[in-house]
Amino acid sequence: MLDQNDALINVWTQFEKICFSDCYARTPTTELLSMTSTSTGWSIDPAHTHISFSVSHLGLTHTPGIFRRFEACLDFNDSRIEASRVSFEIDVASIDTAFEMRDEHLRGPDWFNAKEHPNIVFTSAEVRHIEGIHYAIDGELTIRGVSHPVTFEVALTGQTVNPWTQSPLIGFTARATVSRSAYGMGAFASALGDAVELRLETEIVHTAPVQAQ
């Protein structure tokens, strides 16, 4: 007979295997529409990847939001991170600020204009090592058909082995600040800050078998 802990571990093992085997796992927060990785064997874990943003409201609080659907292409070099490349494409219509009326407005022509410009696209150009666990990813961010250079400040948050699948994992956080007016979204300047913080939290998983030492 399995005790309660053993049963829970079995459930989580099956869940993790499903997530890592097809890269199409759905969660309450995000959905990875497609994932392209190279022969290095590293892929983005959709169950533990979130793309979010926040903007100041009246100088009092910051209104947060997430994008629930995105596609990603990862070429990760674990022996020389500076040689890595990444790109992602966000489905604008998947925006979620926990207030549907606001979300519909954000999808409209005053803001993202999702009908004319359904995707936000970032493509890396260079990865730089700053010091220690800190890196920078320089690239181009396109919103509403307008492209500007953007630099994400990246921190390697840790490395471990998934206790259920025995797959190596690496965690990263990435942040960048962009001007919304630079992308044609300057409405309500007296109420909303122009600076928007973008944040990406991700775990990447190595799906290739671990070589014996």
Rank of each mutant, 00 (worst) to 15 (best):
D3N: 15
Q4Y: 07
Q4E: 14
N5S: 13
N5A: 14
L8A: 11
L8Q: 11
W12E: 13
K17C: 03
F20S: 07
S21Y: 03
D22E: 14
D22I: 08
Y24W: 10
Y24A: 14
R26N: 13
R26C: 01
P28Y: 11
L32H: 05
S34H: 14
M35P: 00
T36K: 12
S37D: 10
T38R: 06
T38W: 09
T40N: 15
G41C: 06
W42E: 06
S43P: 00
I44N: 01
D45Q: 11
A47V: 15
H48M: 04
T49C: 13
H50C: 05
S52E: 09
S56N: 14
H57Q: 08
G59C: 02
I66E: 03
R68L: 02
F70K: 05
C73M: 09
L74D: 10
D78V: 05
R80I: 10
A83C: 12
A83I: 02
R85A: 09
V86F: 01
V86E: 00
E89N: 15
D91K: 06
S94F: 13
T97D: 04
A98C: 10
F99P: 00
E100L: 07
H105R: 11
R107K: 13
P109N: 06
P109I: 14
D110L: 07
W111Y: 14
N113I: 02
A114G: 02
A114M: 08
E116S: 12
P118Q: 12
N119Q: 15
I120C: 08
V121C: 04
T123P: 00
A125F: 02
V127S: 01
H129Q: 13
I130E: 10
I133G: 00
A136E: 15
G139D: 02
G139M: 02
S147N: 09
H148S: 09
P149S: 14
P149F: 05
T151W: 00
V154L: 03
Q159M: 14
T160P: 01
W164P: 03
W164N: 15
P168Y: 00
G171D: 01
G171S: 02
A174R: 02
S179A: 12
R180I: 11
S181Y: 06
A182M: 07
Y183I: 09
G186V: 10
F188K: 03
A189G: 08
A191Q: 12
A191Y: 05
A191T: 12
D194T: 12
A195L: 11
V196L: 01
E197T: 15
E197D: 13
L198V: 13
L198E: 09
L198Y: 09
E201K: 05
E203N: 13
T207C: 01
Q211M: 05
A212R: 12
